[in-house]
Amino acid sequence: MAAAAAAGAGPEMVRGQVFDVGPRYTNLSYIGEGAYGMVCSAYDNVNKVRVAIKKISPFEHQTYCQRTLREIKILLRFRHENIIGINDIIRAPTIEQMKDVYIVQDLMETDLYKLLKTQHLSNDHICYFLYQILRGLKYIHSANVLHRDLKPSNLLLNTTCDLKICDFGLARVADPDHDHTGFLTEYVATRWYRAPEIMLNSKGYTKSIDIWSVGCILAEMLSNRPIFPGKHYLDQLNHILGILGSPSQEDLNCIINLKARNYLLSLPHKNKVPWNRLFPNADSKALDLLDKMLTFNPHKRIEVEQALAHPYLEQYYDPSDEPIAEAPFKFDMELDDLPKEKLKELIFEETARFQPGYRS
């Protein structure tokens, strides 16, 4: 834990890192770190609560700039109880001085990944967590956004079992017609939660990839272990087919990539493993919904509104309290091709509203 900075004593240090967030945020305490930044909790002297502050230093890398800009653009436009918001952003007053960006968010005690390492969940908890994931996802999908990296560590939890989806750095506007060349190379989302079509096709992607990830998360809540822990690309596919069985001819016809289709045709026939054999203690309604989410063919996979209306979630289902976005989200430009200098300018502009004396 960093010592509390005395008023006016300059930035606090946390594990050798400068955290320049005073005077409003003090009493910093280390939480963890990701690929390009550290997260601390801090005391907000204005709202009198502890908050989470993520320090991001992305400006050396085009990919990190892209992810940072995506996350900020999306989260500043989203407003939903099951999606983490941005409360404040701290950065230098000029673009030349801006080396880091500090993002202030609600402090959540833990995440689903940490929880599943230590606790076996009751059916009631599984049901409530799944409902909140789908409630947040309904809003995301209504904005025409794909999260693309749903996994237990991106689901934040607090002691009252509130759940918030975080990390929109890989999110995209849904565009089933656009052929994202190089899709697989830039697709760094965790393999275990990846839909089979991501490994088999490169053309376009749809909201059904997020539903697949939610199915993987439900299976993990039922058993405290990942359902498809593939060691590499082909191993991942083999794990999936080992449980779902061989795809039907109709399902194979959806695979545009001939090499991928021929690979699947070359494999020995596998039978589907019954879900109640894998999860003998699970609620039968939970397994019915799991089956509809972990469907090989993305066109037959359940959609988020149908999933919310499934009998497993009937005690929570309330369409009048499951809000959607006001308007579909649009990125003005494809960020993939922009140089990091341009992305830095866009991050600077996007964060201006939090600067003292800002006038829109």
Score class of each variant (00 low, 15 high):
Ala2Glu: 02
Ala2Met: 14
Ala2His: 11
Ala4Lys: 03
Ala6Thr: 13
Gly8Asp: 01
Gly8Lys: 02
Pro11Tyr: 03
Met13Leu: 15
Met13Asp: 04
Val14Asp: 15
Val14Lys: 04
Arg15Met: 15
Val18Pro: 03
Val18Phe: 12
Phe19Lys: 05
Phe19Asp: 09
Phe19Val: 14
Asp20Ser: 08
Asp20Cys: 05
Asp20Met: 01
Val21Thr: 13
Val21Ile: 09
Val21Ala: 00
Gly22Ser: 06
Arg24Pro: 10
Arg24Ala: 03
Tyr25Val: 02
Tyr25Ser: 03
Tyr25Thr: 02
Thr26Trp: 05
Tyr30Met: 01
Gly32Tyr: 02
Gly32Trp: 01
Glu33Met: 00
Gly34Val: 14
Ala35Met: 08
Ala35Asn: 12
Tyr36Trp: 12
Met38Pro: 13
Met38Ile: 15
Met38Asp: 14
Val39Glu: 15
Val39Met: 11
Ala42Thr: 14
Ala42Gly: 09
Tyr43Asn: 14
Asn45Thr: 12
Asn47Gly: 12
Lys48Thr: 11
Val49Lys: 12
Ala52Pro: 03
Ala52Tyr: 00
Ile53Trp: 02
Ile56Gly: 15
Ile56Met: 14
Ser57Glu: 12
Pro58Glu: 07
His61Pro: 13
His61Ala: 03
His61Cys: 07
Gln62Ser: 14
Cys65Thr: 08
Thr68Gln: 09
Leu69Gln: 14
Arg70Pro: 00
Ile74Asn: 15
Ile74His: 02
Leu75Cys: 09
Leu75Ser: 07
Leu75Arg: 13
Arg77Asn: 10
Arg79Gly: 08
His80Pro: 00
Asn82Glu: 06
Ile83Leu: 09
Ile84Pro: 01
Gly85Ala: 13
Asn87Cys: 06
Asn87Ile: 15
Ile89Gln: 01
Ile90Asn: 14
Ala92Asn: 08
Thr94Ser: 15
Glu96Ile: 02
Glu96Val: 13
Val101Asp: 03
Tyr102Glu: 03
Gln105Phe: 15
Asp106Val: 13
Leu107Lys: 10
Met108Arg: 07
Thr110Ile: 12
Thr110His: 09
Tyr113Pro: 04
Tyr113Lys: 13
Lys114Thr: 10
Lys114Pro: 04
Thr118Glu: 08
His120Cys: 03
Leu121Phe: 12
Asn123Glu: 08
Asp124Thr: 15
Asp124Ser: 09
Asp124His: 05
His125Arg: 00
His125Trp: 03
Ile126Leu: 07
Cys127Thr: 08
Tyr128Phe: 15
Phe129His: 08
Phe129Asn: 09
Phe129Arg: 00
Leu130Ser: 07
Leu130Arg: 05
Tyr131Phe: 14
Tyr131Glu: 01
Ile133Leu: 13
Arg135Tyr: 07
Gly136Ser: 02
Gly136Pro: 01
Lys138Arg: 07
Ile140Leu: 13
Ser142Ile: 04
Ala143Ser: 13
Leu146Val: 06
Leu146Phe: 05
Asp149Asn: 12
Leu150Phe: 07
Lys151Tyr: 08
Ser153Arg: 13
Ser153Met: 07
Asn154Ser: 12
Leu157Phe: 11
Leu157Ile: 06
Leu157Lys: 03
Leu163Asn: 06
Leu163Ser: 08
Ile165His: 07
Ile165Gln: 05
Asp167Cys: 10
Asp167Trp: 00
Asp167Ile: 03
Phe168His: 04
Phe168Tyr: 13
Gly169Met: 09
Leu170Asp: 06
Leu170Cys: 05
Leu170Thr: 04
Ala171Ile: 06
Ala171Cys: 02
Arg172Leu: 14
Arg172Pro: 08
Ala174Ser: 14
Pro176Val: 08
Asp177Cys: 06
His178Trp: 03
His178Leu: 15
Asp179His: 09
His180Ile: 12
His180Thr: 09
Thr181Leu: 12
Thr181Trp: 10
Thr181Arg: 11
Gly182Gln: 03
Phe183His: 09
Phe183Tyr: 15
Thr185Arg: 09
Tyr187Phe: 15
Tyr187Arg: 04
Ala189Cys: 11
Thr190Glu: 04
Tyr193Gly: 06
Tyr193Pro: 06
Ala195Trp: 09
Ala195Gln: 09
Ile198Val: 12
Met199Ala: 10
Leu200Glu: 09
Leu200Met: 13
Asn201Phe: 09
Asn201Lys: 15
Tyr205Asn: 15
Thr206Val: 11
Thr206Glu: 11
Thr206Ala: 05
Lys207His: 10
Ser208Arg: 05
Asp210Met: 07
Asp210Ile: 03
Ile211Thr: 07
Ile211Phe: 15
Ile217Met: 11
Ile217Ala: 09
Ile217Arg: 07
Ala219Pro: 12
Glu220Gly: 00
Met221Glu: 07
Leu222Arg: 11
Leu222Gln: 14
Ser223Gln: 11
Asn224His: 11
Asn224Arg: 10
Asn224Tyr: 15
Arg225Cys: 12
Pro229Leu: 10
Gly230Trp: 05
Lys231Met: 14
Tyr233Trp: 04
Tyr233Ser: 11
Leu234Ala: 04
Asp235Val: 14
Leu237Phe: 08
Asn238Gly: 10
His239Asn: 15
Ile240Phe: 15
Leu241Trp: 11
Leu241Ala: 05
Leu241Asn: 11
Ile243Gly: 03
Leu244Trp: 08
Leu244Gly: 08
Gly245Thr: 02
Gly245Arg: 10
Ser246Trp: 06
Gln249Leu: 14
Asp251Arg: 06
Asp251Gln: 11
Leu252Ser: 09
Asn253Leu: 10
Asn257Asp: 08
Asn257Lys: 14
Asn257Thr: 14
Leu258Thr: 07
Leu258His: 08
Lys259Met: 14
Ala260Leu: 02
Ala260Asn: 10
Arg261Val: 10
Arg261Cys: 10
Asn262Gln: 04
Tyr263Ile: 10
Leu267Asn: 00
Leu267Trp: 03
Pro268Ile: 01
Pro268Asn: 06
His269Gln: 13
His269Gly: 07
His269Ala: 00
His269Lys: 09
Lys270Cys: 03
Asn271Pro: 04
Asn271Thr: 12
Arg277Ser: 15
Leu278Glu: 06
Leu278Thr: 10
Phe279Pro: 01
Pro280Gly: 10
Pro280Trp: 05
Ala282Glu: 05
Ala282Val: 06
Asp283Met: 00
Ser284Ile: 06
Ser284Gly: 11
Ala286Cys: 07
Ala286Arg: 04
Leu287Gln: 14
Asp288Gly: 00
Asp288Tyr: 14
Leu289Glu: 03
Leu290Gln: 14
Asp291Gly: 05
Lys292Ser: 06
Met293Val: 00
Leu294Ile: 02
Asn297Met: 06
Asn297Cys: 11
Pro298Ala: 10
Pro298Gln: 02
Lys300Pro: 03
Arg301Pro: 04
Arg301Lys: 13
Arg301Glu: 13
Ile302Ala: 03
Gln306Gly: 01
Ala307Tyr: 03
Leu308Gln: 13
Leu308Trp: 10
Ala309Leu: 04
Ala309His: 02
Pro311Lys: 02
Pro311Gln: 09
Leu313Glu: 09
Leu313Ser: 03
Gln315Cys: 05
Gln315Thr: 02
Asp318Val: 13
Ser320Val: 05
Asp321Thr: 05
Pro323Val: 02
Ala325Met: 06
Glu326Pro: 01
Pro328Gln: 06
Asp332Glu: 13
Leu335Ser: 11
Leu335Tyr: 03
Asp336Gln: 01
Asp337Arg: 07
Leu338Ala: 06
Pro339Ala: 11
Lys340Ile: 07
Glu341Arg: 12
Leu343Ser: 10
Leu346Ser: 08
Ile347Leu: 13
Ile347Ala: 08
Phe348Gln: 07
Thr351Cys: 03
Arg353Gly: 05
Phe354Tyr: 14
Gln355Cys: 08
Pro356Glu: 10
Pro356Asp: 05
Ser360Lys: 07
